[in-house]
Design a protein around this nucleic acid. Structure first.
Lengths: 220, 220
DNA sequence: ACCTGAACACCGTTCAAGT
DNA sequence: ACCTGAACACCGTTCAAGT
């Protein structure tokens, strides 16, 4: 197996043939537009006017290619402009920024999750949160517990949300399911609400606000 | 395209050839053991001593097959024995039960998520929660908001957790990443904690407890 | 150092034909 | 009603060979 070029050896090279950068660029475009499933080594090669094996030389295989795609995406997720005056509203602004960035690129989010790269992808989120929690006066274990709670909840919402149109047939949507449930012991008002489609952003907002307020105000 | 047999037409049939049930059984076993990626129509056929096209007659395609696999899994997720005396501890016992069921079958959980069937899979969780929140005195919108918060958070944790061994190379694990971060503005105690691996179950426990307590005690 | 061609071992799916 | 065979249009990856 030939050693693929690493980013750390830029090594001047004549302007002929294909570069690692061009390959990743094209792969990002395909994944962003049509999802991970649409990225094939052969299609990508054809689109670049080359041959699959050339890609192997530069990148090393489909998995490495996907990792490179995710890395490019992660680099574009810049830390948010933190907004708000109270600690709670500042933390919420960070959470919202990441939800928004991810929901603008659902297919890249899916790729990151599929390759197990969530920790990397959400690192900028974590750093911003760490600063904010420190500024809010949280220290040590209290701070790390709060941070991990927020990070997992935000990541969880993001990962649940990336499925742009639901894959499943209509009857599997949550609202439909609630139509046929045994209602014994369930408040009728609650049941009526559950038969309406959920507003994902509203749930995100409500959940995060409740959680962050509790984490920042509960005594240690 | 021939009409695949539906579950609602059991239709007595001689004991020859393969049945839909046998196909789904075998598929569940493969997915459970080796993941969605290892389920191929051809391998499955060979293992059943038949030919791929026979499977198409009974099921209709790979996607329908996966949906059937998930349906089987969902049917096995029985509602929990609810435990505890306070509303908070009872709700937590439900959440834990679902996290445990899912983490015993990470590959089936992945399949459900991949097919966009989370709403179906977590329906028993939702029903149990709806009863418990009603019993705790929550009504109408207040109850539905609390329920959706809990459901999304539990689902999010579950979906984040199913990646049994992290796919990514070692340097992408969260602890490693924190070793190289600009520490300005971050509490040293917090930073030290973040450089240790996270205890997933502890984060789940802490997050859920904080959230559920806040949701059940905050005034409407 | 980089690219090519041929080959291997797979896929999902369709369709006409059999019993 | 159910199964078979052949065929189509794909895959990822390896490897020896070229320049």
């Amino acid at each position: 197996m030939p050693e693929p070029r690493t980013t750390s050896t830029p090594s001047r090279r004549p302007a002929r043939g294909i570069t690692r950068e061009q390959i990743v660029d094209a792969a990002v475009a395909i994944v962003e537009a049509d999802g991970v499933g649409s990225l094939s080594m052969r299609k990508l090669a054809t689109q670049l006017g080359t041959v699959p094996t050339a890609i192997y030389w530069h990148i090393g295989g489909r998995e490495q290619l996907l990792d490179a795609v995710v890395e490019r995406f992660t680099d574009r997720l810049v830390a948010a402009q933190v907004r708000g005056r109270t600690p709670v509203s500042r933390v919420l602004s960070i959470a919202r920024h990441f939800r928004d960035s991810a929901s603008e690129h659902p297919n890249l989010t899916e790729a990151a999750n599929e390759r197990g790269l969530n920790a990397t992808t959400f690192l900028p989120l974590q750093i911003a949160l760490a600063r904010e929690l420190t500024a809010a006066g949280l220290r040590g274990r209290r701070a790390s517990e709060a941070m991990r709670s927020i990070v997992y909840v935000v990541s969880g919402f993001i990962v649940l949300a990336y499925r742009v149109p639901p894959v499943a047939p209509t009857r599997h949507r949550s609202e439909e399911l609630w139509a046929e449930i045994d209602a014994a012991g369930i408040d009728p008002g609650l049941l009526a609400d559950l038969r309406e489609p959920a507003d994902f952003d509203a749930v995100f907002e409500h959940t995060l606000r409740t959680l962050v307020e509790a984490l920042l105000t509960t005594p240690a």
